[in-house]
Amino acid sequence: MTQSFEAAVQSFAPALPLAVGLSGGADSTALLLACARRWPGQVQAIHVHHGLQGAADGFEQHCILLCQELNVPLVVRRLDARHAPGQSPEDAARQARYQAFEAVVLANQSQFAIQSIAIAQHADDQVETLLLALSRGAGVAGLAAMPTHWVRAGLAWHRPLLRVTGADVRRWLQAQGQAWVEDPTNTDERFTRNRIRAQLLPVLDAAFPSFRDTFARSASNAAQAAELLQELAQQDLSMVGIPPQLCLLQSLSRARQANVLRHWLRMIHQTTPSAAQLNELLDQITACTTRGHHIHIKVGRSFVVRSGPKLDWYSR
């Protein structure tokens, strides 16, 4: 169920000291303000200057002034978050931001031994993420959307506002008399996420007022299914071997073959096959009944090939 901003912060119990990702927008400004009041002297802010738009200098200045006012230490990390060919700008910025957070924490461990990092995404962000995943034909891992907490690089990461609406965050911030900055790209409907926010969420709100709760349940169910598939993939990969033995792969159902091959490619070779690539690979595995059968399928920037009794990975 959705909850109030105050209830979400009150139930948030991270290991301290805590770092808060601070963009300067309403959501992160509210989260930092609430955390700094609750745990004075135990909170640090991290601001990432992506270098992607002219307004970024204004975001940084807001963060500096806010942290001075709150007496919260601030670390600013400047980076180039431009996306690679074939990568979405949003994903490139997100990955660069996470890497910057980790680098700041590691570099400042002797001064401020951060145990947890909090990010201010809220219930509307979760709905947008789920709808984006649906629009791209994602599987259960994509439909799981954003977790409330997870571990990365030895740090505990939290999204304490995932059950709070964006409107409630802003109402709370306005009641505190606290200003924030608006990212001008948030209203640019050339971006799919912004079209969802501007055009779909109001319609959903009118037709299904409880959609945030029901969508959150669906994401939670998908997350549980994704966890089970991950466990099965790990078991199957230990059985078929690394690299996978063709005869052992062929003993599995097509669905389990797909699951373990996705896992092998993602975990060992850091790539994800498209649906077409994976289906072609599965067809070739089924057809591979003679010694002379050839497999050479492009996946990402490299190839899955047959090497004797096994599949192998060939990187150009």
Rank of each mutant, 00 (worst) to 15 (best):
I64G: 03
A233Q: 11
L161N: 03
Q245R: 13
R193C: 02
N194W: 00
G25Q: 12
H83V: 04
G166V: 07
R97F: 03
W172C: 03
W39V: 08
F101W: 02
W157I: 09
F12H: 10
P273M: 02
G41S: 01
F59D: 12
Q270D: 06
A123H: 05
T29M: 01
V75E: 05
R256G: 03
Q87D: 07
H293K: 15
L161A: 01
H50I: 02
L143H: 06
E280L: 14
A222L: 08
R97M: 09
G58S: 11
Q87M: 14
G139I: 15
C63S: 09
R94T: 10
A84E: 15
P202L: 04
A30R: 00
G86W: 06
G308I: 13
M267A: 06
A107P: 11
G166N: 15
Q224K: 14
A120R: 08
H122D: 10
E231H: 14
L282H: 10
Q61G: 06
A207D: 05
A255W: 09
F112L: 05
A133N: 04
V105I: 15
V72C: 09
T187E: 09
G25H: 02
R193T: 07
S135A: 13
A92C: 13
W313P: 10
P309T: 11
R152F: 12
L22I: 11
L249C: 07
A107W: 14
H149E: 11
A144H: 13
C35E: 03
G54T: 03
T289E: 15
L70V: 00
S28I: 03
P184F: 00
S220D: 01
P244M: 05
L248S: 04
Q234N: 08
A26I: 07
L74K: 04
A36P: 10
T2C: 02
G241L: 07
V169F: 02
N279V: 11
G292T: 15
T148R: 14
Q42E: 09
C63A: 05
Q245D: 01
N186P: 08
E182Y: 07
N259D: 06
A144S: 14
H296A: 12
V151N: 08
I242G: 00
D168A: 12
S110Y: 10
G54D: 08
W39Y: 14
W157E: 01
Q99T: 06
A8L: 03
A92S: 12
G86L: 03
V75H: 07
S11V: 12
L65P: 01
I295S: 05
A145F: 04
I242Y: 10
A107R: 14
Q121L: 01
W180Q: 06
V305F: 09
D91H: 14
A107T: 07
N71T: 04
G21W: 02
P209L: 00
R306E: 04
F5D: 08
R193S: 13
H49F: 08
A81W: 12
A92V: 13
Q53K: 15
V240F: 11
A287Y: 12
A56E: 13
D183I: 08
A8S: 06
A123S: 11
R94L: 03
M239L: 08
L134T: 04
A144R: 11
